[in-house]
Amino acid sequence: MNFRLAEDGDIDRLHTLIESAYRGESAKRGWTHEADLLGGQRTDRKSLKAIVADPDQLIWIAESEEKLRGCVQLSRVGGGLAYLGLLTVDPGVQAGGLGKLLLAHSEDYVRTNWQSEAIEMTVIKQRVELIAYYERRGYQRTGEYRPFPHGDTRFGLPKTKLLEFAVLRKQI
């Protein structure tokens, strides 16, 4: 598996990968989808371009055999904290260890390059299997919850009004 930073030319492929892993019928091939909780889009090309252009954010791409297999977004928060989002693995290769590799690569990167001491993420609280996955990798629930952006279709169409984010953190 090769890791590299995303560039503008990767936006379309990134968008396709992310949507296939989080939404719709293709997402249901994997175990990490949100398709039962949300419809609509997970992200859009404009948001991905903004991440790639921002000096305090980046997206790592995982490729093998010239195919995009996964990605992860990192944001420099400051004060020794980084944020991890959009952890995505192609549904066809989920459960093969790529998610663990992307997490480890991300943690090493922010510790070494941004001098981060902790990494934080938010996960929809109803996704208990996914939260358990992260807990097995050392992330802990902080007890903090953040609101889901209901009404903002850029983040999807909730199938319930009860969605909110649980905050997880790991000391690195």
Rank of each mutant, 00 (worst) to 15 (best):
R4S: 00
E7A: 01
I11N: 10
D12M: 06
R13S: 14
H15D: 12
T16S: 13
I18F: 01
G24R: 03
A27I: 03
A27T: 06
R29I: 14
G30E: 09
H33E: 05
H33G: 12
H33P: 08
D36F: 06
G39H: 02
K46D: 12
K46G: 02
D56M: 03
Q57M: 05
V72W: 08
Q73W: 13
G80T: 00
L81N: 04
A82M: 02
L86N: 14
L86Y: 13
L87C: 08
V93P: 02
A95C: 08
G97H: 09
G97Y: 05
G99Y: 05
G99C: 07
L101F: 10
L102M: 12
L103I: 13
H105T: 12
S106C: 00
V110R: 09
R111H: 05
R111C: 09
Q115T: 12
I119W: 13
I119C: 14
E120A: 13
E120C: 10
M121T: 03
V123H: 10
K125A: 15
K125E: 14
K125V: 11
K125N: 13
K125L: 07
L130R: 06
A132F: 05
Y133S: 10
E135V: 03
G138R: 07
G138F: 14
Q140P: 01
R141P: 11
G143L: 11
G143C: 09
F148I: 08
F148R: 08
G151R: 13
G151H: 12
R154I: 06
F155I: 02
F155L: 07
L157P: 02
L163D: 14
L163A: 13
V167S: 11
L168C: 05
I172W: 07
